[in-house]
């Protein structure tokens, strides 16, 4: 469904993604790992089409259609969705009100808020004074309402305590349709820094990004095991030895 071809992306004139190739098929859950500043968030945001992330080379294809110049709202309409790592505060608008604007009927606000245990956030100004965990829940709640065919999820577990990681993991499984046998499977691209989310989400593929290039791919648990043992330094050395 999504193919990223030889993608290079600049932020404020600085090249952050150098050469990214990635292919995600229907129903596949992909994990994106990599050290801080390697360009993981930039890739997600460029796929979503946010303005600051300028594609200078390569293509983003959605079912074969190039969407490089498409604004984010149109990408959302096609079925892309994103959960931000850090979401902006919007005063005077509640999470409930935003929910009213984005729901496409697959899940209902009240039920999902209850499942995520974040009902008390519904009538607060969006992201205003939200803790790390609350922000993640609010992001996932919005994605659940939007029910995208491909969910781009940026560090769902950062700043979240262990109890809440389980809740967030369940929400991601629900989002990807992994909880029910007959349900249509949705695709996901999930950034994780710590790998904790792998204990809860059944991921199909893993990718390691270093300095704006995806250098390695494979079974996400194996990859993470390697990273635990050798650190990203190991990945960097391996990549260099392969001339990447």
């Amino acid at each position: 469904m999504l193919v990223v071809e030889d993608l290079a992306v600049e932020i404020d004139g600085k090249l952050v993604l150098k050469r990214v190739n990635l292919s995600i098929g229907e129903g596949e859950a992909h994990i994106l790992m990599g050290p801080n500043g390697s360009g993981k968030t930039t890739l997600l945001r460029a796929i979503m089409g946010l303005g600051k992330y300028k594609v200078v080379k390569g293509r983003i294809l959605w079912y074969g259609q190039e969407i490089n110049d498409m604004p984010p709202d149109e990408r959302a309409k096609l079925g892309l969705g994103i959960a931000f790592q850090k979401a902006p505060v919007i005063r005077g608008i509640t999470l409930r009100q935003i929910g009213g604007h984005i729901t496409n009927g697959e899940h209902t606000l009240e039920v999902m808020a209850k499942q995520l245990g974040c009902e008390e956030l519904l009538d607060r100004d969006l992201n205003y004074g939200f803790s790390g965990g609350e922000m993640k829940k609010a992001e996932l709640l919005q994605l659940l309402l939007q029910a995208p065919r491909l969910a781009l999820i940026d560090e769902p577990e950062s700043g979240v305590d262990l109890d809440n990681i389980a809740i967030i993991g369940e929400a991601i499984n629900l989002l990807l349709g992994k909880t029910k046998v007959l349900e249509e499977k949705k695709a996901g691209l999930i950034i994780t820094h710590t790998g904790h989310i792998l204990d809860y989400v059944n991921a199909d593929y893993g990718h390691v990004m270093i300095e704006g290039v995806i250098v390695c791919g494979g079974n996400p648990r194996d990859l993470f095991k390697q990273i635990r043992e050798h650190g990203y330094e190991g990945c960097l050395e391996c990549a260099r030895s392969r001339g990447l």
Partner: peptide, 13 residues
């Protein structure tokens, strides 16, 4: 940032 945040949810600019 806030405008794009809402656009990413499918809301027109």
């Amino acid at each position: 940032e806030a405008v794009e945040y809402l656009m990413a949810r499918g809301v027109k600019r």
